[in-house]
Simulated assay, not measured.
Amino acid sequence: MTTQGRKTAAPRKRRTYHHGDLRQALVDATLALIAKEDVGAVSLREVARRAGVTAAAPYHHFRDKNALLAAVAEEGYRALNQRMEEALARTRAPDLAGRVRALGRCYVSFAVEHPAHYRVMFREEWGDEEKYAAVHEEGMRAFQRLLELTAEASAASGGKVDMETLAFNIWAWVHGLASLWNEGPLRKKTGSDSISPLLERSLDLLVMLIVGS
């Protein structure tokens, strides 16, 4: 067989990035990989391949895989915090029930809409506050908003409810709801393609337990 008359495929051009774009390109490639496979599939070499850069390129921005995943987690927390800020700005004091609903809705909706970020945001590694200071700071910003609301709820109860315990339980409630939906069991049980109806009913119950209305 000869090659005469056959068209040869043009060589695939390597994508290039201007200064300052590579870091985000690697984060985006990591998110795409997690969405398609899982966190366990992430490696600097594979992310570099998907981003169209050399295997050595990621090391200009990230010392190792965990540093790359920390950047993904930080981005997720920043986006979640922005959502929370906007939602709370629309629902001001003294509407405690409205703000509880707003935070719960933000948390679960973000988790469902951005499952790749969500899978990375709560990894055990981020417990090293010194090594992963930026992730810790953004995570604490989100948790502080919850503490502020539970402090109000505790005060309204005359101090009968411990605000930190209440915060932990609200967090566990919304986190479990989002995780069970993302992993599939709740989608199967409800037979729904949208978490919204279940989320709103859950928020009604949550507000009734916390605020009493």
Rank of each mutant, 00 (worst) to 15 (best):
S202K: 05
C106M: 06
Q4Y: 15
M163L: 12
K36Q: 08
N182M: 06
F110P: 00
L31N: 00
A55L: 11
L147H: 03
A151N: 10
I210Y: 01
R105S: 10
E125F: 10
E74K: 10
L103V: 11
D38P: 02
G127C: 06
G52N: 14
A48R: 00
G20W: 03
D21F: 08
L166R: 07
I195H: 01
V174N: 00
T54I: 12
A178Q: 02
S179Q: 15
G20D: 07
A25N: 05
W126R: 02
E85I: 06
E75D: 11
G5H: 13
D21L: 12
Y118T: 09
V161D: 07
F62E: 06
N169G: 15
N182E: 05
L209F: 11
R83M: 05
Y59M: 03
K160R: 13
E75L: 08
D128E: 05
I170K: 05
L22S: 07
E124F: 14
G5E: 15
I210A: 06
A155E: 08
Y132R: 06
R63Y: 13
T165Y: 14
A79Y: 09
R63W: 11
A41I: 00
A93W: 07
L31I: 02
D162H: 10
L69S: 05
V174E: 01
D64W: 06
E183H: 10
E183Q: 11
L177D: 00
A133M: 11
A155F: 01
S43C: 04
K131G: 10
L88M: 08
L68E: 02
G184S: 04
D21I: 09
D128H: 00
T150E: 03
A25W: 01
H18V: 13
S196V: 15
L147K: 07
A51D: 03
N169Y: 13
I170V: 12
A134K: 12
A93T: 08
M163S: 14
I170S: 06
Y17E: 07
A134V: 13
V207S: 13
A111Y: 03
R141C: 05
C106S: 07
M163H: 15
A57K: 04
L205R: 15
V120A: 08
K13P: 11
A156S: 02
R23K: 12
E86K: 05
D28T: 02
W171L: 09
A142S: 11
A25F: 02
A25H: 03
V108Y: 01
T3E: 14
L146W: 02
R12K: 13
R90G: 11
T30V: 00
A102P: 01
A70Q: 04
L103D: 05
R123V: 13
N182A: 07
A153H: 03
D204W: 08
V42Q: 00
E137C: 14
E152F: 09
V53D: 12
A57R: 03
G5C: 13
A87N: 04
E164P: 11
V42W: 01
R123Y: 12
L147M: 06
A155S: 07
Y118L: 10
Y59N: 04
G212S: 04
Y118R: 11
H60G: 13
E75T: 09
P197K: 07
M84N: 04
N81K: 14
A116M: 05
G159Y: 02
A134Y: 08
E37N: 05
E152R: 10
D95G: 09
R145M: 05
I34P: 04
V53E: 10
